[in-house]
């Protein structure tokens, strides 16, 4: 089986973007999330349900509550990915910070944020990642923290490199950091990816482009924030995360 070319994948991406734009123009609701059925991302073809999900509107649903985490689950150094080994990792040191809030703007407090990423050369420390870029003995690429009372998280890391993958011929992922987030309800669970502003690989990447709504896609891109940058030390990026989904507290007064 020959791999599709980038040109073929890009044509499929454009086709779906145009179909979405037309649907919205014809009155269809905007989509905040990716299409689960998104053939330009080939692995989605056999891994998406063909039937729509069944709505659950039971106010007693267990999913309206969710798991909790605490200081036993995270150590103080887990949010600094540059200090997990004896030496310093290679690459551009960065600070990534932002707030985790719900759709009403309320902070998600004391919740677990987990991240993972490639090293500066675009290589994951995963045995399935065998592309010919160097591993960095001083970088694992995994971090976690709890949000503070304002819902804020902060990580110190290095900027991950772009990397090739096998979706199609000459496929490259833009630089990204994987994020895993919990809200106050299990319904708010989110796994996503943070991208870096101005990356020239955005239009070629079917994973990012699976979010066909332009404004929604832009919400996955962090902002460079010069006030966050620290002289002689690190560049700052700000990325706020808004969790979707209802919670048990939505109808409670005073929350």
């Amino acid at each position: 089986m020959t791999s599709p070319t980038q040109k073929e994948i890009s044509a499929e991406i454009a086709e779906r973007r145009d179909a979405y734009a037309k649907a919205v123009a014809d009155g269809a609701p905007r989509m905040d999330h990716p299409h689960r059925d998104y053939p330009p991302y080939r692995s989605s073809v056999l891994r998406h349900p063909k039937r729509p999900p069944v709505p659950v509107r039971d106010p007693e649903a267990v999913e309206l509550t969710g798991p909790v985490f605490g200081h036993t689950d995270v150590t103080e150094w887990d949010n600094d990915l540059t200090r997990q080994h004896t030496g310093e990792p290679l690459g551009e040191r960065i600070i990534v910070t932002g707030r985790v809030i719900d759709r009403n703007g309320r902070p998600v407090r004391g919740q677990l944020v987990e991240i993972w990423q490639a090293n500066a050369a675009g290589r994951y420390i995963h045995q399935r990642d065998q592309h010919p870029a160097p591993l960095d003995p001083n970088f694992t690429g995994v971090g976690r923290c709890l949000t503070d009372d304002e819902g804020r998280y902060t990580f110190i890391t290095i900027k991950p490199g772009p990397y090739p993958w096998r979706n199609h011929d000459n496929a490259w992922r833009p630089s990204h950091i994987h994020f895993s987030l919990f809200g106050t309800a299990f319904t708010q669970r989110l796994v996503t990816q943070m991208y870096f502003p101005g990356d020239p690989l955005f239009p070629y990447d079917p994973i990012m482009q699976s979010v066909t709504d332009d404004a929604a896609r832009q919400r996955m891109v962090a902002a460079y924030d010069h006030d966050l940058s620290k002289p002689e030390w690190a560049l700052g990026y700000r990325w706020d995360i808004v969790l979707d989904g209802p919670t048990a507290t939505v109808f409670e007064e005073g929350r």
């Binding site: 905040d32 999330h33 990716p34 991302y41 809030i101 759709r103 009403n104 703007g105 994987h178 895993s180 989110l190 796994v191 996503t192 990816q193 994973i207 990012m208 699976s210 979010v211 404004a215 929604a216 896609r217 919400r219 996955m220 995360i241 808004v242 969790l243 979707d244």
Partner: peptide
């Protein structure tokens, strides 16, 4: 507020 989109794990 509009939510942050999901992406594959």
């Amino acid at each position: 507020l509009p939510p942050t989109p999901s992406q594959t794990v």
